[in-house]
Design a protein around this nucleic acid. Structure first.
Lengths: 148, 148
DNA sequence: CCTGAATATTTGACATCCTGAACCTTTCAT
DNA sequence: ATGAAAGGTTCAGGATGTCAAATATTCAGG
């Protein structure tokens, strides 16, 4: 149905791109959830764990990054903690804050998940290197423009 | 920071693109959830409602499209129904199936939501028409390659 | 030093989402 | 006519998310 190469207006073109992105989002979501479930993690747990790849982080910071209430993070970290994927330590600088850190097992889990997350890897193979580079640059411009 | 036009390997390029897409997905998700919440809908409810834009649909079909258990849809449709956004009617052809249809209010809600969903519309403005067309074509090829 | 405001986290109550198993109703093949 | 199969619902239970209230710690002023 969307075979006409040139839409009626630039606005229609934008809407078309937005719709395509929506499809992409749905696809990615499914694959991510699947990959997490394969390690008996939920999507939220996998996301938190992924955030800790670069080092420990206060609860508050996690909540801000995930755009949710801090009280929500408490539960997620609880479940990750009881399964040995993260630890909670009081920050010596400010004993109000708890630093959440991934354990060895936690690091391993995210690393594996990242590897098996072959989202779009196969379909991406349909694009040659030049096209992939073009795509990368376009996405980069979109994301830096959306600056969050 | 990522100004080198050609990463170390094609695999790295792919990973870069995948990471960018992950960022896009996060952004989209936030905006969608926000737009839905502005109409006191949840993301799941908005998605179901959006599915009914083209006409009534059996519960089972909704579940398949959303990749979830049918029993899940029951609850979501329940909530949409009590708020007057959808109706359930028995299919005359096969009285086992229930056809879910959006009401006037339901149609209006999705239409508005679709309009106010300005995801990437502003950042997309940074791309000229040629670039947007290129992006559209690349995304199309990715999605058809991922055949769902 | 003390008091009070502000911050980081937790707790509890509650709604939603999601799964899996058990159950009805209707259809369909034999 | 009977039994298997399919579409929905119900129920129990876990996870996610919000909000308000409570706790603990920090910090600024008097």
């Amino acid at each position: 149905m969307s075979n006409e190469p040139v839409p009626a207006s630039a606005d229609d073109l934008t809407r078309e791109v937005v719709d395509l992105m929506a499809g992409l989002v749905a696809l990615f979501h499914r694959e991510y959830e699947e990959a997490a479930a394969a390690r008996s993690l939920t999507g939220a747990q996998a996301k938190v764990l992924a955030l800790l790849r670069r080092g420990p982080m206060p609860m508050r910071h996690i909540a801000q990054t995930m755009s949710c209430e801090p009280s929500n993070i408490t539960g997620i970290v609880d479940r990750l903690e009881t399964r040995g994927f993260v630890t909670r330590e009081a920050d010596p600088q400010d004993r109000r804050v708890k630093l959440v850190a991934a354990t060895e097992a936690g690091q391993a889990a995210t690393e594996e998940l990242r590897k098996t997350l072959n989202f779009a890897r196969e379909p991406l193979a349909a694009l040659d290197e030049t096209e992939r580079t073009t795509l990368r640059d376009l996405l980069q411009r979109i994301l830096t423009g959306a600056n969050l």
